[in-house]
Design a protein around this nucleic acid. Structure first.
Lengths: 206, 206
DNA sequence: TAGATTGTTAATCGATTAACAATC
DNA sequence: TAGATTGTTAATCGATTAACAATC
């Protein structure tokens, strides 16, 4: 039996499943089924069962899945059964909103260092973190052992920032700057660009 | 010849092409090729040519694509060769960052109405727009004829807000609330959830 | 037991890629 | 002309879906 890599598209759905399970759990449900889950998410039940089958057997014929158990298992698979330290680069409007976003903390993502290059912003304190000059980035994230970063800078400096982050040990980047970055295969990269989403929808409008 | 729908996954790449073309244009380039574009975007050149072939012939053998021309054509295809009025619901940290985001205006997306249900926020003015109570949403967006909206509310009220938007004529929603929404097929829906992106990356970290 | 739902197989569907004739 | 690159076809690859035996 050859080692089969789990497709990234499957990995991409696991956080969605996790979110739905958390919601169901908070609503007081104890069990669910691939059918119920699929209905809520607009996904086929077969796809959900197939996705989960890459990692093991989590359900029971006739009764479905115990929500709390499945939730814990997916958390482990995704490595979110622990806390993650995150660096944030760029402290404009967007960076500030990110720094304040409670959703990150709730899910175990903690912004431990914030960087900007605007002298007016340096020294400001958010949730106990000081905004530092980008010149301090290398030693700060290397010292803290930070592996994840969020880029919320203008597009013009995003590649340069990414290079610096990677050189100092960052392995995963969430990029809000509206530009395609070039990174080594060993570094994970995700994009958030609201304009891209809006333009994808206008195609269907008239 | 049967009418062939262009796959949505192709539509999803067009804004990326557009962004790259704009960047190349601003850098002073006049022509590009599917190869150059592909290299910059980490996409195969054949895929770019195939994607474009759904809409027509925009290049020239031997020389490639004229950047300005291709940019204009893709803009037309995506219906972003015009301005779009947008409603924003939710004026917390995130909503405020969205309201201030210059990237939207640059690309022709104009936030014409802002809603929240927190009395403390009502009446505040951003870029000439007043924050209104959600109770005024129906008549306001119906009157303005708004077709696009951005939801930046807590998850708990997002579905209710979406329903209200759709009932009053909205056809496309960009949802920042961390919950899967249920909407009719006739309504376009895109999601932005940074936590989902982060969790998708931690799978590959250890 | 009867009903429900899993995990998995095989079929289908759709997207990506390689290759190349056409032609600028 | 020679070199480059398009648009398109056909082959490959991978993902989704339907169906069902197993079993709780």
């Amino acid at each position: 039996m050859a080692i089969t890599e789990v497709p990234d598209i499957v990995i991409g759905r696991l956080p969605i499943y996790l979110r739905a399970l958390t919601l169901l759990g908070e609503a007081g449900h104890e069990f669910t089924s691939s059918q119920e889950l699929g209905q809520r998410l607009g996904i086929g039940s077969a796809q959900i069962r197939k996705d989960l089958s890459h990692f093991g057997e989590f359900g029971k014929q006739g009764t479905g899945y115990e929500i709390k158990y499945l939730r814990d298992q997916i958390s482990k698979i995704l490595h979110v059964d622990r806390d993650w330290d995150v660096a944030l680069v760029g402290f404009g409007d967007l960076g500030q909103a990110i720094a304040h976003y409670a959703g990150f903390i709730d899910e175990g993502f903690h912004i431990r260092a914030i960087f900007d290059n605007d002298p007016a912003k340096l020294g400001r304190v958010v949730n106990g973190k000081v905004v530092r000059n980008v010149s301090e980035l290398p030693e700060t994230i290397a010292k803290l052992g930070i592996k994840m970063a969020i880029i919320a800078t203008p597009a013009s400096v995003a590649q340069e920032v990414a290079d610096k982050l990677i050189k100092n040990g960052v392995k995963a980047i969430l990029n809000y700057a509206p530009i395609t970055l070039s990174v080594p295969d060993s570094v994970r990269l995700q994009y958030i660009d609201p304009v891209v989403h809006m333009q994808r929808m206008t195609y269907y409008l008239d």
